[in-house]
Design a binder for these strands. Structure first.
Lengths: 226, 226
DNA sequence: AAAAAACCGGCGCATTGCGCCGGTTTTTTT
DNA sequence: AAAAAAACCGGCGCAATGCGCCGGTTTTTT
């Protein structure tokens, strides 16, 4: 039966084949580039494989050589974005966090985070895709988990005194706040952007400060599991 | 030509006809109720008109008596949600804000805001729809504008000293932070939810406090238009 | 030069839920 | 109570739509 086979193909997200030649590797990269550009221009809804091929100046067939379907392209974009975020977070984790004040830690964190948001073309539609397309949900969850785990680990190294679930809660709040406000900043310019960035940093200070070292927060108890 | 006619129908968002009989008005309400419930259960992607009809125990035809298409149903839901938010904000605006401390103002604001978020079934998929479905974008924009205008007006009455564009920037930051964190809170329970709510309030305090009365913020100048 | 990889683009086709329609039942009107 | 208006019913036609396969050609590698 062809139907089952098609379903399998459709739900397949892994690249069709690993490109071995240099030109091919380049093509795969170009496809992602073009997709990013198009996402910015036309948005998620009007993005089609034909459009990608036309824009890149190759045939549809070529595109399908590398990706089994459209979602796989978006998935790859998402993974790339996750990878760059991981890389930057690891960089930060490699530095001597223990020496840092909370303020300068947040400064570094926001710098790297913002740069990842700014460098990613078509970020907004991509986020939208990770929300809206079932096949990509997993990416969204991995993203959250990734960030939260990194944050929790860093919190500890910064001398936070709080039980695991509470740290987790803080990390989630940090994540969501940053995510929302960074998306705002990316669409602002000049002074406006700078002030919002500074506001974000202040808000995070207030969120996290009470959990550092001696200054005990009102409640010591841990919180329920998520 | 039937195609053009169909296109027209498809882009039509207004209810097909205003229900006059009591039973009919009830049906329209039921359809929205059911849609909300289904949004919660199956999400946006698997929501179909057939499913709505089946769940409600009426025929598809009946559904189409009231709404020209599926988007119109979601649009109506969105409007309902906007209406309840407007109502609550107007209530708050009717009270004597000038007397309130920033802290108690934020308390009231968050209370009402949270309750609107909690009462709306299937809020998350609805938000997703307002992002993802072009026909509903307008709703999203109206929502943002509505909240921002209310906030700016309230900021002024609370004695904020800042130029209009700056107030607008603050309102946007407030909106996005609340939106993100309220969505988190709605999915939390017990202590966890309470603490996050309190964190949100603290963050907003820090965001807004510097702009009140004498305590002048670092920069007085207005910021660029949005 | 032969083999392997990459490229090409037309087009068949499955899918899918939309929403129209003709007829029936219920409610309102007179 | 009868006629008119409104609401309800559910089968099914169908249009749109973009996916992605295929057979053959060109380029790169060995």
């Amino acid at each position: 039966m062809s139907t089952a086979e098609q379903k399998r193909r459709k739900n397949q997200l892994a690249p069709r084949r690993e490109p071995v030649q240099a030109r091919a590797r380049e093509r795969a990269r170009q496809i992602l580039d073009t997709t990013g550009r198009l996402l910015e221009q036309v948005g998620l809804n009007d993005l089609t494989t034909i459009l990608i091929a036309k824009e890149l100046g190759v045939s549809v067939g070529s595109v399908y050589h590398y990706f089994p379907n459209k979602h796989a392209i978006l998935y790859a974009m998402g993974e790339q974005w996750l990878a760059s975020l991981t890389e930057r977070l690891d960089e930060l984790a490699a530095s001597e966090l223990e020496q840092l004040s909370l303020e300068s830690f947040l400064n570094e964190l926001l710098d790297l985070w913002l740069s990842v948001y700014q460098d990613q073309r078509g970020l907004l539609p991509l986020v939208q895709a990770m929300w809206g397309i079932p096949e990509l949900h997993e990416l969204d969850e991995r993203h959250d988990e990734l960030v939260i785990n990194h944050l929790v680990a860093m919190f500890e190294r910064l001398g936070f005194v709080c039980p695991p679930n509470e740290a987790n809660r803080l990390a989630r709040a940090t994540l969501e706040t940053c995510h929302a406000i960074l998306l705002v900043i990316v669409n602002q310019q000049g002074v406006r952007a700078q002030r919002t960035r500074s506001d974000l940093q202040n808000m995070l200070m207030v969120l996290l400060e009470p959990h550092r070292n001696e200054s005990r927060p009102s409640g010591l108890d841990d919180v329920e599991a998520p």
